[in-house]
């Protein structure tokens, strides 16, 4: 019983983590919390849905194309909406992402309607795997695996590639990065593209588990933020850990205390962390620039 609750929590937490990672990449490089991240993921999931349902593509092909779309969408948002606001107050960019949140939700509603759709899983009704006699639903295992793979991939990319170096330099000090010849515009766009990708992956994993509808990412966005704050938005592994802890806590509290309390927990955790350790469990305080 408790083993399954924990596994379920880890699986849910992995989904939060994918959204959290998307948010954290963008925040680290451009300092902007992207409140449209969830809706961007929702749209790219609908794109996958259309490719599957209307154009009859296979699952993998549809999802691969949709993830490509998710990257382009992130880059396009950065170039069209965010870039003109660079240099102004962060507030303006944040408000723009909120506006974008509404725009994307409305557009999705116009194209796909607000009713719920069923989004298939590539695993179908595969039987659970048994580990030490405990049945583990395959999709839960897959969620955790994918989230791990994404965070590992992003970490490696940041550490060992040129693009990653440019991203890290830009996130440290954009002015200095520009001075040493790093095209920071490209770094910003890349960060948004990567964020779009991580969010898009979350979308195609969430949709089969729940339903596909225009509001499916709203709760996930909040949990991604909360888990991120818990673990520390400045560290990708912190975000991952924070989201996993949040997912497991939610499941345990929901099962043993009360189901509705599970959701309130998100907020309680958030307030507690902000009071006690605002930089998050694994995060570091950034030096103030004067």
């Amino acid at each position: 019983m408790i083993g399954n609750l924990i596994l379920g929590g880890l699986a849910a937490g992995s989904l939060y983590a994918l959204v959290g990672i998307a948010l954290a990449i963008v925040i680290r490089v451009t300092d902007i919390p992207n409140f449209a991240q969830g809706e961007m993921a929702m749209v790219s999931t609908f794109v996958a849905y259309s490719l599957l349902d209307r154009y009859g593509l296979g699952w993998w092909a549809a999802v691969a194309l949709a993830l490509g779309f998710a990257v382009l969408q992130g880059v396009a948002v950065q170039i069209l909406v965010i870039r003109p606001l660079i240099g102004g107050p962060v507030l303006s960019a944040v408000i723009a992402t909120l506006g974008l949140n509404i725009v994307l939700n409305s557009i999705a509603g116009m194209i796909w309607g607000h009713e719920t759709h069923i989004f298939p899983s590539p695993l179908g009704d595969a039987p659970p795997v048994f580990v030490a006699g405990v049945p583990l639903p395959l999709d839960s295992v897959a969620n955790i695996g994918v989230a791990l793979a994404v965070i590992l991939g992003v970490t490696l990319l940041l550490r060992y590639s040129w693009a990653g170096l440019a991203l890290r330099a830009t996130s440290q000090d954009a002015v200095m990065a520009r001075l040493v010849g790093i095209p920071i515009g490209r770094s910003f766009a890349l960060a948004w593209g990567l964020g779009g990708l991580a969010g898009g992956i979350a979308g195609v994993l969430v949709a089969p588990a729940l339903f596909l509808d225009t509001n499916m990412m709203g709760a996930l966005l909040i949990k991604g933020f909360a888990g991120g704050v818990l673990g520390g938005l400045s560290s990708l592994w912190g975000v991952f850990g924070g989201c996993l802890v949040l997912g497991v806590l939610e499941n345990l509290v929901g099962a043993y205390l009360s189901p509705s309390f599970g959701d309130a927990l998100t907020f309680i955790v958030l307030i507690a962390v902000l009071t006690i350790r605002p930089e998050g469990l694994l995060g570091r305080v950034r030096m103030r620039k004067v």
Binding site: A96, G99, L100, N101, I102, V103, N105, S106, M110
Partner: peptide, 8 residues
């Protein structure tokens, strides 16, 4: 919604 969001 679309107009309001765009306006923002």
């Amino acid at each position: 919604g679309l107009v309001f969001g765009l306006a923002l």
